[in-house]
Design a protein around this nucleic acid. Structure first.
Length: 806
DNA sequence: AGCACGCCGACT
DNA sequence: GTCGGCGTGCTC
């Protein structure tokens, strides 16, 4: 009987979803569940996660090579959470565990080619006799350089290097060498400290008259305690002096880790504000759970500008007072720098910012600060829910309704659900906040799964903006064909005249949204994806799905007609229109095309907030998170753009967008006004949105959901089947649907819809079909899916609780 | 994911 | 006959 270690292999392949057994060498006996290790796997060395230990016959098992950290990465709660994710979202345990690793892997493998050492030049030449010069050139290059990576070789040689090298590897002239390097490359700085007592040092200074450099060193250490490299230069103390003092045992060198943090210089706002009475009442309901270390979940429904952040700050402060840690989730860090700044102002270095745009090094440093207890608050986008914290006291989820909390690639987790699971295991609280809670969460709050808290008024006594609905059909009837209605034009003019600022929202980027032949109706579409191409001002037609672009044709590719027209308005065209209508206004556009890099959104918003512009126009990102006091006017160009999407949550999204956008207006002393342009003014989502009437919207939406058996009354699981051929995808999707139907026996509690061709039938030359399963409970569905082994298939992707069904 | 193994068509 | 194409299956 031997101790056996069960390891999940960190490779992004869903078919390897089992544990592999290894033995521990004597020097690694301390390894238990939760450690990251390096293990031999096939002919390679890969990263693995220890999930459990066992005992049994260990014959023929390989040994773990080394531990990758000084501490286990996963604690029991993290392991349990990973297990839950793999069960619930039907991914492998390794895929779930990878989520907890910054950069998904702690190892970087690199490949180098080397000449076989035991071969002579003559032997090589003989083996390559009759081959082209290419082969000999490669050997010569490798002989000269010892080893080289593939990119290096490509730079040096011409032709198909990979083919050449593979041949040489086959002929045993060249060998491939893999090396694995730890991803985490901490930066250290050396600090010097006294190794003797201060009394001894003073004694030494008294007796040794000579050695002025050593005197300076000891004196400085006595007064300052520690010295860094830069200090030594300043004091004119040479490396030699340091070396001798080290050797003599007078001083010791210590390595201290340096932290790279690109957020260090972010501006801070003024100090804490006192809570108003409503905020106090809300806080009092949350506090008992924080103090008593209980798992409780709260849904804070607070209108825009009601001061939800203030409540978050107080909850986090209370959690920290209990010496527990907190996670603060925000939908998108770039759009929410205001909330980040407020946490940093309040908690200073206790805050760590985590998100996907950080470099691997920055991320590792941040995580190291958490693991060593130097910081106890994580603020970040959805992946921050996986931060390694040993005593999670609270998770705050700001803008709980946002879809960005759902990961749209496997594993398709929802950060809100992961947060609830982690907090439950850790006995912490979850506080979700939103002005427009998701129907599902609000339903759970009404049913007391979450505790419902309300902040019905704006914190500073400001009123919600007045909203005017403009019927665009009416505009057309009056002969006004501009995308900017008369009401909106008046609103913008008035605001600018008073020196106030305007935000305009249009949910499509690009210039024209589609290009059509007026002769035959052919719409230019992407050759890889079944979506229409968008005309950009750069003069090219771009696919918003696969990023390819083409030059617009002069004649229609189908009928050769020259009558090609550009339809629809995107943000670029709107910018032109606004410039024509308001020639003196200073404008800035914010969409995916103008924001790039780490702080792109932030710069635009800051410049706007500082008053450098009169009008901010852009896609829905202009509607989120910020609080700019001088904005008194908001215009929504087409409120219907989302409403008409074929998705049962279209109304919910429209309502949220209108409410959030309108909420940007009138946050200062001057009250705001909003113009919403629509072709459906009587639609309940738009009508309730214009009245800021969440409860009314919720009620109408809920009854619709009930009658159509949609969430929260059912759980949805979406399958996407793909194939390179159209016929093939129809066949395999039909097979899967048939198998599911017989396994789940369609009844009142389960409905299988489809297969139907996906709204985007083809992406990057892969044909797509969807199957939707609606069921009261999704546990039996998940069970059947795994029994049918659909979760292992490369051509099937499973989305549990999808945020959109398209 | 890599890599070995294996079975086919296209050439010296 | 060799080379190299990629489909299948395995990695403790």
């Amino acid at each position: 009987m031997q101790k056996i270690i069960l390891v999940m292999i960190n490779l992004p392949v869903k078919t390897i979803n089992k544990a592999f057994s290894y033995l521990l060498p004597p020097e690694l006996q301390f390894i238990r569940a939760g450690w990251r290790v390096l293990v031999p796997f096939g002919s390679r060395k890969v990263e693995g996660f220890v999930v459990s230990t066992d005992s049994g016959n260990g014959d023929g098992l390989k040994y773990i090579i080394e531990a990758l950290d000084d501490l286990p990465w996963f604690d029991e709660n993290m392991l349990q959470t990973a297990k839950w994710i793999s069960d619930y979202y039907l991914c492998s345990l390794a895929e779930a565990m990878r989520l907890f690793i910054p950069g998904k892997t702690g190892l970087k493998t690199s490949l180098a080619y080397q000449l076989c050492p035991d071969l002579s030049c003559n032997e090589i030449e003989a083996a390559l006799a009759g081959k082209s010069d290419q082969y000999l050139a490669a050997c010569e290059y490798l002989a000269g350089h010892g080893s080289a990576s593939l990119p290096q070789i490509y730079k040096q040689l011409t032709g198909d290097c990979l083919k050449t090298l593979n041949y040489l590897v086959n002929k045993k002239i060249v060998v491939k060498k893999y090396s694995t390097v730890k991803q985490d490359k901490p930066k250290y700085e050396t600090f010097l400290k006294l190794a003797i007592t201060p009394a001894e040092a003073e004694q030494l200074l008294r007796v040794s008259g000579h050695r002025p450099a050593r005197r300076r060193l000891l004196t400085a250490l006595l007064s300052k305690g520690v010295l860094a490299k830069a200090d030594l230069k300043l004091l004119n103390i040479s490396q030699d002096t340091v070396k001798r003092s080290l050797a003599g045992g007078l001083i010791v060198a210590e390595q201290k880790r340096l932290l790279r943090n690109s957020y260090a210089g972010l501006a801070h706002e003024a100090g804490a504000i006192r809570l108003n009475q409503q905020q106090q009442q809300v806080l009092q309901q949350i506090m008992p759970a924080v103090v008593n270390r209980q798992y409780r979940s709260f849904l804070l429904h607070g209108i825009t500008g009601s001061g939800k952040t203030q409540v978050y700050l107080e909850v986090v402060a209370a959690v920290r007072k209990k010496r527990r840690q907190a996670i603060v989730l925000v939908p998108e860090i770039a759009l929410t720098s205001q909330i980040v700044a407020r946490f940093q102002t309040r908690f200073n270095d206790d805050v760590v910012v985590l998100h996907s745009k950080l470099s691997i090094d920055e991320r590792n440093d941040a995580i190291w600060r958490l693991r060593t207890g130097q910081a106890g608050i994580v603020i970040g986008a959805r992946s921050a829910v996986f931060a390694p914290l040993d005593d999670l006291g609270a998770v705050i989820i700001d803008e709980e309704h946002e879809f960005t909390y759902k990961q749209e690639e496997a594993p398709r987790y929802h950060a809100r659900e992961v947060a609830l699971k982690r907090a439950e295991l850790a006995e912490g609280v979850v506080l979700m906040g939103s002005a427009t809670p998701s129907v599902e969460s609000y339903y759970q709050a009404v049913r007391h799964t979450h505790t419902l808290l309300e902040l019905p008024d704006r914190a500073d006594g400001a009123s919600l903006p007045e909203v005017e609905l403009v019927d665009m059909r009416e505009e057309l009837r009056c002969g006004r064909r501009s995308v900017i209605s008369l009401a909106l034009r008046n609103l913008i003019n008035a605001a600018i005249a008073r020196g106030e600022q305007v935000i305009i929202l249009l949910n499509r980027r690009g210039y024209s949204t589609f290009v059509m032949c007026r002769e035959c109706g052919h719409v230019m579409s992407c050759s890889n994806c079944a979506v229409s191409l968008v005309y950009h001002k750069s003069g090219r037609l771009r696919c918003h799905y696969c990023q390819t672009s083409v030059t617009p044709p002069d004649v229609c590719p189908v009928c050769s007609s020259r009558y090609i027209r550009y339809f629809g308005t995107g943000t670029q065209r709107l910018e032109d229109e606004l410039a024509k209508t308001f020639p003196t206004a200073r404008m800035i556009r914010m969409d995916q095309d103008t924001t790039g890099g780490k702080l792109g959104h932030d710069r635009i918003l800051q410049a706007f907030a500082q008053g450098n512009y009169d009008i901010l126009l852009g896609t829905q990102m202009v509607a989120k998170g910020h609080d700019i006091k001088n904005v008194t006017a908001v215009g929504i160009i087409t409120a219907d753009s989302i409403l008409n999407l074929p998705d049962f949550r279209a109304a919910e999204r429209t309502f949220a967008l209108i409410t959030q956008a309108a909420g940007r207006a009138g946050r200062g002393a001057v009250s705001g006004k909003v113009v919403i342009q629509t072709y459906n003014p009587e639609h309940y989502a738009i009508e309730t949105g214009s009245r800021h009437a969440y409860a009314d919207f919720y009620e109408q939406e809920l009854s619709l959901r009930q009658s159509l058996f949609y969430p929260p009354f059912s759980k949805i699981t979406k399958l996407t089947v793909t194939a390179p051929e159209e016929g093939e995808v129809h066949r395999s999707a039909a097979d899967i649907a048939a198998a599911l139907t017989s396994a789940l026996a369609s009844s009142d509690s389960t409905k299988i819809l489809g297969p139907f061709v996906a709204p985007i039938a083809r992406i990057s030359n892969s044909f797509r079909m969807h199957i939707l399963i609606k069921s009261v409970e999704n546990a039996p569905v998940r069970l059947q899916l795994s029994l049918l082994k659909l979760h292992l298939r490369a051509d099937v992707s499973i989305d549990v609780d999808p945020v959109n069904v398209m």
